[in-house]
Design a protein around this nucleic acid. Structure first.
Lengths: 214, 214
DNA sequence: GCACCTCCTATTGGATCCAATCCAACCTAC
DNA sequence: GTAGGTTGGATTGGATCCAATAGGAGGTGC
């Protein structure tokens, strides 16, 4: 199965991450199959994968749709990130190469050059996930990636309503983190990262309108 | 898809958890289909789900097999549990009913009555997962469940080689945890739980033979 | 006019069939 | 005797077909 299935799953993932499929929206097998020039079978398998990843939910005989998340759900998912990402970072840090750090620098430079929301989301995501990727533990990186994937929609909504000061804070925190990484200071890096996530979570809680809960 | 697929996925999960399919062992679609009286199609979808859960791995054109985990992988997965389960407990605690606590008591009584390894594994698993189930956050409970599922084989091997003193320690720690839960003492409960997991992890690291790494 | 029931269509779920790939055994050439 | 190529069986991957279910449109009775 895998070759076509993986391709389709990747396509659907990026369509959801890119906001082309919004929460609540239904995903019909036939549509996806035609769009990608495949039969419904590998589409069904891809949907099964995404369901296991939490990116879509599947009701018997009613099909697949992107799930809505409540504010509490997202809040707890940020708490999970706050617990897991410092661990991922400390497991990854010993294996980060100077080349990796250089790449982080490039990404951050690009962010600070001033980009639109959509590209900011992609770059911010790449920045963080890249710092974890060297850890080599699949269960860990995939769990963290899942948390990023499932909350992307709400992160986007948040970026759209928050002003430029939000960006400045993020940039400063990224620089602090990179500095600690360069010094190989595991303690500082973990502290900055946890604080970065925690502050974002608290900020999010001030905006229930992101979740349609005002 | 869902009705048959879920049934088959559940069957495969319990077969792996029960040790009837060991790491490295191949899972052929046809065999499973015949055993459960279904066609290969829902089996393929179930395998796709389990692959996304990390319980099997899938190589294109070569089929599915239960993956081996290295000692480091399991070590990091225990570190993940150490971070996540106290969170799950604190999110769940406000919603735990007296009936839930009573059920925990029953499970622990049964464990202490003296059970075989296989039943101990099942009861221990139910004990802990039940303390989290009230939190109502799917992403959290399913992540924790995944970590338990994927490490079950190694937990079994460990229980087989460790003596009865190991059981006494676990029992004492469970009682401490239950006591804290009864007092609604979130701090103590989290502390006991984290320590429980951490000590188990350290103990595991003393037995590389569990992973075929001596 | 409103509620309920029936039928019809759109969509998903499952089975069978055929093609592509892999792996191992065997055969040939040197 | 060994290395390398070749062929055949086993298994997975993909497409098409048919069955089952959901949900809405339309009709009928009161």
């Amino acid at each position: 199965m895998t070759v076509a299935t993986q391709r389709i799953a990747a396509h659907l993932r990026s369509a959801i991450l890119g906001g082309h499929i919004a929460p609540g929206e239904r995903v019909r097998q036939e549509d996806v199959a035609q769009e990608l020039g495949a039969s419904r079978l590998p589409v069904r398998e891809a949907l099964q994968m995404l369901a296991a990843e939490g990116m879509i939910e599947h009701e018997p005989n009613k099909g697949a749709r992107v799930p809505w998340l409540s504010m509490r759900e997202v809040d707890v998912m940020y708490k999970m990130r706050e617990q897991l990402e410092p661990l991922a970072l400390s497991e990854s840090m010993p294996f980060l190469t100077p080349g990796d750090l250089l790449r982080l620098e490039e990404i951050q430079d690009e962010i600070e050059a001033g980009v639109e929301v959509e590209q900011f989301l992609a770059l911010d995501r790449e920045f963080h996930l890249r710092t974890y990727s060297a850890c080599g533990i699949d269960h860990l990186t995939s769990t963290v990636t899942r948390l990023w994937n499932s909350t992307q929609y709400y992160r986007r909504a948040f970026m759209h309503i928050s002003g430029p000061s939000r960006r400045w804070v993020v940039n400063a925190e990224h620089r602090l983190l990179m500095d600690a990484l360069g010094r190989r200071d595991e303690i500082d890096a973990g502290r900055f990262l946890a604080g970065h996530i925690r502050r974002t979570r608290i900020e999010l809680n001030r905006h229930p309108e992101v979740f349609g809960e005002d």
